[in-house]
């Protein structure tokens, strides 16, 4: 089995996979607990527009996706404050806008070809050193920020008003969280694809929450589940020649089902 690692593209894919396996649930736990699970979906739809713009303008598509998603993140945060009672409206508006822009740019650039499919469903073959470098830098930024701001992110996610009274800069922390979400998706779309990126942010977290542990333990378990899904999914994708996005998310769904069944068996009913 280890012979597959003699190929550069496999090594690149696994290294990139391990990084996204860590960062997706790391950010995912905060957005799930803030009841903003759909934000990953909205931003990944925007990322497609960024990829299309990158292809059209001849710049590295991941940079195009990142720039557009950072902009969309700022817009979501602004709209969330405008529609405080309907925070999910901001997400729906940005998701639709992103998708419409993507369709326009793709049709304008006649880009409905195989290269766009690698961004939609992920790919192992196409992860090059440039991708790995970008994913690595984004990974370091995300992990370092979460480690430094873990107290602030925890408090703001748990209860914004109390956090504000305790002196936490809530608006800034919310903004940082959305920008980190954008960075996470930018790092993930090469491997998992934009259609399933948000799943990797949400499903390992859903599995971890079933274990009913404290906050930091939940974070560690979510990362472990995610890493298992990435490793299992990549191996399956390599041997069966499938798109890795599907296999990775399929593995994470299997783990969720397993944990749900075990809990049901232990407790007599699902929690």
């Amino acid at each position: 089995m280890l012979e597959i690692f003699q190929y550069d593209f496999i090594r690149h894919a696994f290294m990139a996979g391990l990084i996204i396996g860590i960062i997706c649930p790391l950010i995912g736990l905060f957005i799930v607990l803030k009841r903003l699970s759909m934000i990953g979906d909205a931003l990944s739809h925007v990322s497609l527009a960024g990829v299309a713009a990158g292809m059209l303008l001849g710049i590295y598509p991941v940079y195009g996706a990142l720039i557009l998603m950072l902009l969309a993140g700022l817009i979501i945060e602004r709209l969330r404050n405008t529609y405080q009672q309907y925070a999910e409206l901001a997400i729906a508006v940005v998701l639709s806008s992103g998708m419409s822009l993507a369709v326009i740019l793709l049709s304008a650039g006649r880009s409905f070809n195989t290269s766009i499919f690698t961004y939609l469903f992920g790919s192992i073959l196409t992860v090059n050193e440039h991708d790995l470098f970008t994913i690595g830098i984004l990974g370091i930024i995300i992990v370092a920020t979460v480690v430094f701001l873990r107290k602030e992110l925890f408090f703001v996610t748990f209860e914004e008003e109390a956090a504000r009274l305790a002196g936490v800069p809530v608006t800034l922390i919310n903004l940082i969280l959305i920008l980190l979400t954008a960075c996470t998706i930018a790092a993930t779309i090469r491997i998992v694809g934009m259609l399933l990126t948000s799943s990797l942010m949400v499903i390992p977290v859903a599995t971890s929450l079933q274990l009913k542990k404290g906050f930091y333990h939940s974070l560690i378990f979510a990362v472990l589940f995610s890493l298992l899904a990435v490793i299992g999914g990549l191996i399956l994708a390599i041997y069966l020649n499938l798109a890795p996005g599907g296999t990775i998310v399929f593995f994470s769904v299997l783990m969720l089902l397993f944990v749900l069944l075990m809990r049901a068996k232990l407790l007599g009913r699902p929690q």
Binding site: L33, K151, F155, A162, A163, A166, G214, F215, Y216
Partner: peptide
């Protein structure tokens, strides 16, 4: 998923 002591400690920000 927060323990009692994690919630209380948060306010020592």
């Amino acid at each position: 998923p927060a323990t009692v002591e994690e919630v209380v400690a948060a306010n020592l920000y």
